[in-house]
């Protein structure tokens, strides 16, 4: 599973990081640090919850094996 983030549209709500700081790392200014995250096994639920938590809806989940 991958997380894709429209980084330029991040406004720094940090709601994703409130779900999982380990997964959604912020840069020094408080915005999302990256535009793509490989989700480690076992963290899929956190990834999905973090994506849903974004008020600007800039986070999408890309499944490895879409059914």
């Amino acid at each position: 599973m991958k997380i894709r983030i429209q980084k330029s549209a991040c406004v720094g709500n940090a709601r994703c990081a409130a779900v999982s700081e380990a997964l959604f790392q912020l840069d020094g200014d408080g915005y999302i640090a990256t535009d793509s995250i490989d989700v480690p096994p076992g963290m899929e639920q956190l990834a999905k919850r973090g994506a849903r938590a974004c008020p600007e809806r800039v986070i999408t989940i890309v499944e490895d094996n879409p059914e």
Binding site: V11, N13, R15, R52, A53, P55, E56
Partner: peptide
């Protein structure tokens, strides 16, 4: 509640500048 994703600060280009 998991979904607390409010738009109290608005959304889009005019989203509250002072929200942080």
């Amino acid at each position: 509640r998991e979904n607390k994703v409010h738009i109290a600060f608005g959304t889009g280009p005019h989203r509250c500048l002072g929200s942080h």
